[in-house]
Simulated assay, not measured.
Amino acid sequence: MAMECDSEAKQMEEACHDMSSLEDLASRGAWRSIIDKVSRARALSLLHKPHDHLTYLAFNALAFTKLRRFNEASSELDSLEDLDSSHYRYETYPKIYPNRVGSMVPFSLRWLHALIPIKLGQRQQGMDRFYTLLDFVRLKLLQKQNHHNLSLSLNLWRQREVFVVNCIIGHHLSQKEFGVCLSLMKELLSRDFSDPLLVSQLGYMQLQIGDLEGAKVSFFKVEDLGKSNGSLSDVEFKNLVNRNKALIYLVGKDYVSAVREYEECIERDSADVVAVNNKALCLMYLRDLSDSIKVLESALERVPTVALNETLVVNLCSMYELAYVNHSDIKRTLSSWIARVAPDDFDASCTRT
């Protein structure tokens, strides 16, 4: 995720020490290289300004988190004071940052501050921090709404509100707390019912609680909206509609119709991994293991950087186990290939070799 030192990405671009190389490493999943780079920068005292330390700390904590080294990520965060401390505000250092005001704490650092306790088994503390973060984001939104000339910044904070709410929903869903999830999503939609992604998410939740008719209403609403939301391209919107239709077919065990919807998605965008994965599963349900394996293998060969995710690999390995007596050898070959091309944070244990 983006690492802005303040609400304006521009400030980070102008100010942060060697920012582009850190972002490049993150985009390639080179998390171990980030940890090495931060360690060297600290050892050589290359970080001179207060925001440099915060930015590098944020990337370091994120890298540890991606590598599932949560105790080390927690140690990084423990070295900080209160994130709203005056020590982390530009105006505290007028000689270094003339005419700048506001927090220099990257948003990602606030997110990690909430996430890490959950990863360490301290769920209540983490959830409390997520709700505090949501209050923080909504306060920022109110402030931005009073400055109509800051439309880009306003959109950024709206995206962050959706992101934080989705994080909270994800943790509630893991505990099957569906009522809270529905309330949170409906609260978001009460302010903007024109986002097809959010309306689709409401439909997915309704399916999880067994409200098939409610999900159908939500998915029809998505089709009615059309591509009204600028964040989706025409292809992305059409694929969203197809995937929603396919889910309804899946619930009704009409796998042939679901495959047809997913094939339309893949024809438009061969990198639509959700469609690829779900098409393969539908073929497996139709007892066509050979074709289901071909679908996943083809995706890994065609777009490895996109298709290489744990869910798809787990499903492929399960299909190998069902289809082949010598599945252990085949999975070892897959593991060797993954070791060469996967990002640092890929969980290689998903091959079960």
Rank of each mutant, 00 (worst) to 15 (best):
F64C: 06
V38N: 01
H51G: 13
F64S: 01
F64I: 04
S27C: 12
L47E: 04
R69I: 14
P98G: 15
S103E: 02
L44G: 12
L46E: 15
W31Q: 07
V38H: 01
N71D: 12
E81M: 14
H48T: 06
L46R: 08
I34Y: 00
S21C: 13
A73H: 00
D78N: 12
Y93W: 14
L62D: 03
D24I: 10
L83I: 08
R100E: 04
L22Y: 08
L57C: 05
K37V: 05
K49M: 15
G102T: 04
A61R: 01
E72V: 03
R89E: 13
D78A: 14
L62M: 13
K37I: 05
P98N: 09
K37L: 15
K37E: 04
D82P: 05
D36V: 06
P98F: 11
H87E: 11
R42S: 06
A30C: 14
Y56H: 03
S20Q: 11
A73P: 04
R28P: 05
R89N: 06
R68H: 10
L57Y: 09
S85V: 10
G29M: 11
A63W: 05
L83P: 12
A43W: 01
N60Y: 04
L67H: 02
T65W: 00
E76R: 03
Y88P: 12
L62Q: 07
A26C: 07
S39W: 00
D52V: 12
D78T: 09
R69D: 15
